[in-house]
Nucleic acid binder design. Structure first.
Lengths: 147, 147
DNA sequence: ATGAAAATGTAGCCTTGGCTACACTTGGTT
DNA sequence: AACCAAGTGTAGCCAAGGCTACATTTTCAT
């Protein structure tokens, strides 16, 4: 048994399907941060300030939950906040929010374009957008442009 | 202050946006069960049996995680399983799997139809499908039929 | 200026969905 | 028949994202 090993190496072979599911799971983890970033940007742009309570109300969660999420945003370098002083986005946070907003618009527009009623489009986009890859987004954009 | 109350009742007014986010969050909880049900149906149909290890491998999680999820499926009345004996779907489970499979196909087809490359379509559909409402699904179906 | 209401923050608990480590069946070879 | 590998199951841990309850700080009207 020196050289004649049948080499049962069975290379890693992460099944494609497993990779897909794994990615979908990961995407879901980023989703929350994206929602918060987008909302904060929106509040900052329109109302001038983003307070935990407003964020919580808009998202339909308790203020405690919102504060925890904000802490996570800070940990990830997406936002800054001083006690009792409102939340702000860092450069990175702004960037993220911008991309998210664009993506959201594109998803809604595509849904509308294929005939989804407005209400459903707005509703479903909220969940769908977090799973749309760049390639898909590009395709959406192309489709909307050329018709 | 008997009749002249200015009625500051401020009816619940759950903000639309909050409702949307809430729904997206809830959908996510059902997603896992859907994936498992679909996969189990697939394994049962093709291989003849659905073992926890196979399920785990296909989903890219540890077998322990799969077993926990199977326990949840049982709790929800979607599957049955006796120790060391493989997993089976109940009537309800079959039903769910069927709907999920149909929806999955429809989502992939729509993505392809608007020009998303196959690989991205398969990938993104895995995440998107769980957030597609019936209304949207119907629209997809209509769109695919009439073109 | 002060006192109450609103906003904020903290603590502790729950469930989900992951994981690793360890124990126990099963079943196929030898 | 007995052994061992593969498959199963159990226990215990972790982080995320919810919640409620309680404490603290701001703010704003009087």
């Amino acid at each position: 048994m020196t050289t004649a090993e049948p080499a049962p190496i069975e290379l890693p072979e992460e099944p494609t399907q497993a990779r897909r599911f794994g990615k979908a799971r990961t995407a879901q983890s980023a989703a929350l941060l994206e929602d918060y970033a987008e909302l904060i940007a929106d509040l900052l742009a329109t109302g001038g300030e983003a307070r935990p309570t407003d964020i919580a109300r808009r998202l339909g969660v308790s203020h405690a939950t919102a504060i925890k999420a904000i802490a996570r945003l800070k940990r990830e370098g997406l936002a800054t906040a001083r006690p009792y002083r409102g939340v702000f986005l860092t450069e990175a946070g702004e960037h993220l929010a911008g991309r998210v907003r664009l993506r959201h618009r594109l998803v809604v527009d595509l849904l509308l374009a294929v005939g989804v009623p407005r209400e459903a489009a707005e509703q479903d986009a909220e969940g769908i957008e977090h799973h749309v890859s760049d390639a898909t987004l590009a395709a959406f954009s192309r489709f909307l442009a050329g018709r």
